[in-house]
Structures are given as structure tokens and as C-alpha cells.
Design a protein around this nucleic acid. Structure first.
Lengths: 166, 166
DNA sequence: GGGATCTTACTCGGATAGAGCGTGTCCGAGTGCTGAGGG
DNA sequence: CCCTCAGCACTCGGACACGCTCTATCCGAGTAAGATCCC
């Protein structure tokens, strides 16, 4: 029951990317510097997000990343699944079918009740994450912020945002 | 986002232990054989359950494990937390406070909205697990079972259950 | 002066080492049973 | 025959290697910008 550290980096990266204007991109190096993390490592997760269709990439000089969808259409679940993989956390190995005197498989047509309960809890978890979009997170932040955090973000964007003709 | 393999073993072990009669115990070796898993490894998790107050241990020859509470008072969450630890899956490292131009900490009195959303989802997950008790799992199994699975379990218990005077 | 072309520098992308944690195993401490010996 | 006591075998408990995933890093392929050269 542990989430990798890259999840936090990925979510924050998406949040920052949500702040740039139409047609603007941000290089991975800039995002990494803003968060004080390793560039190479952040790239790994940005690539995962790109592969999942959450981010678009612009290659070449003056290239970088930008959102592929609107912030309101990117949920936390999308990001978590892209980075951590979509495999369920609980995997039933059907150990009840092992042991010295295993029953024929026909008696185990119904999935294990334990597995069902665990997966049900996981569905609830994912549903909760799916309810929260990046746009919601930004809205909550703007509400509690007196302007300082937003100002720092804007200053960073003004310095590092790149316009692209595509 | 991954649960250890021991969680499944632990839950099934508790389910088996729920089937023995008042005052009966089951050795770790018997449980491991029934599930076809390593004895030494299962012991690790049984000890965790014991330390969490879910199981009682009876030392010495003819000793073993038994439930410390009624099956209806043991939730899946109890078992998962005992085996996996109670630390939250998502840990906020506050990377938004890092980087080249960090703001003073006083601007970050409110917890990170991202962290709040992730932890909220986790609370929902745990609440769902807490709703399901071992007794519920056994009841569901008895409902879909034609008797074969229960019969195998009873045969195993009759062979390996030990009476203790304590 | 304008346009095409070549070089160049910068970007992302995938393949490659190292660390931490889960997995699997082992040996030691503790305890109740069991048998022998004495009363 | 019954009680006491010592030995013992079996149990759980904690300490010890191994493998895999996550973390962190490097080098290579691709591309658009910019300078250069020709018309």
C-alpha cells in the first residue's frame, strides 16, 4: 500500500502546465527546476503522461510539454493510472485453490469473495480520485491563496513559457 | 499502487481461523500447508496480526493461533493495516515549496490541495474496507457454495484443530 | 535583398546502473507435554 | 499407585540473505531555429 514519489511530481507538473496560455509549452527542465527535482527522473513520468494522452509533446528546440486536454477533463485518477499503471493493487492468487487437497476448479466459478471485496474498495478509491479534476485543485488553491503562490507561478511562467506556432 | 502478496495470505488465514471452534487453535504450519505457501513467510504476517491484536498466540507444543475477536469484529481494513502498515499510500513531500525561489513557509499554512484530495480518496478506500468484516466474507461464501468448499475446510479443521485448556 | 540549404543546438525518447523494500529463509528463546524415578 | 522432576520436542519470535520494483542517470534520435551561401 504505497504510491511512488513520482505521482506527486506528475500531478504538480500537470497543475503547472494548466497555468500556461493557449499555444504555450514548457520544457521538462523548467518544470523540474521549478519543483527542485531531477530532470531525468521527471522526464520518465512526463513521458508516461504523454503516452497516456494527457500531455502533448512538441519536439525540437523551443519545444516542451503542454496539456492535451482541458484541466477540467484531467482527473487525478488519469494521472495516477498513467504513472503507476492501471493494474489493481490487490491481486488474488487464488491460494484457496492450492494446498494438499485442492478441489476441482469447477467449484470456484464464483470469484473469491475476499478478492471481490478488495477490488470493490479499490473501485471506490478510483471513483473518488476520478471525481477530482486538476481544475478543481487549482480552484481550491486560488480560494485559500492570498495571491502570493499564484504570483510566483505567473512569474515563473512568464520567464519560461514558450510560444509555439502549432 | 500495489499491495503485498502477504495481504491475501493474511486474510485467508484469518478466514480459516474463524472456522475453528471455541478454544481451538491452529498451528502456522497447518495454515501454510492448507494454502500451499511458505511456513516461514506466513509466520511473518501472522506475527503482525498478533501484534495488532487480531490474533492470539498459544505458545508451546499443541500451540498455535486463534482469533482474538469475533469474526464480525475483524474488518478487512484491520488486516490490511496490520500487514501493510498504517502509513498513508500518498505522501506529500511539499515539492511546491522547493525550487529556486521558494516562498516563505507562512504562505503554505493550508495543506496542499493535491495531498488533501489524495488522502480523501484514501479515507474512502479505508472506509469501504472497514465496512466488510470477515464474518461477511464467510457469509457470502456460504451463500454461493454448494457445500464442497465448506466440507473441505471442515475436514481440514477436524484433522488439524487442537483443543487447548486455556 | 530574398530564398533555399546546411549546420547546429536544443528537445524529447528509450536504454542503462544503483538503492530501498518486499519476499523468502534461517536459527534461537520459550513453553507445555512426556517419560522416568522416587516415595 | 501417585507425585515430582528433568528432558525434550514442538511452538512462536526475531534476525538474516535474495530478488524485484522504484529511483536516478546517461546517451542517442529527431527537429525546428538560425546562420550561411547562392541567385
Amino acid at each position: 500500500m504505497k504510491l511512488g514519489e513520482g505521482v506527486e511530481q506528475a500531478i504538480h507538473s500537470v497543475a503547472v502546465l494548466a497555468g500556461l496560455s493557449e499555444g504555450g509549452v514548457l520544457s521538462a527542465a523548467a518544470i523540474a527546476e521549478f519543483h527542485g527535482v531531477s530532470v531525468s527522473y521527471l522526464l520518465k513520468h512526463l513521458q508516461a503522461l504523454s503516452g497516456a494522452g494527457i500531455l502533448d509533446t512538441v519536439p525540437g528546440p523551443k519545444g516542451g510539454y503542454r496539456l492535451a486536454r482541458l484541466p477540467k477533463d484531467i482527473s487525478l485518477l488519469d494521472i495516477v493510472l498513467a504513472v503507476e499503471g492501471s493494474a489493481p493493487a490487490f491481486r488474488c492468487a487464488e491460494i484457496r485453490q492450492r494446498g494438499p487437497n485442492p478441489l476441482p476448479g469447477k467449484y470456484f466459478t464464483k470469484p473469491c469473495g475476499i478478492s471481490a471485496a478488495m477490488l470493490a474498495a479499490e473501485r471506490v478509491y478510483r471513483a473518488e480520485l476520478a471525481k477530482t479534476a486538476i481544475a478543481d485543485v487549482l480552484a481550491d488553491l486560488a480560494e485559500s491563496d492570498d495571491g502570493s503562490i499564484a504570483a510566483r507561478g505567473c512569474a515563473f511562467l512568464a520567464l519560461n513559457e514558450r510560444r509555439t506556432n502549432r
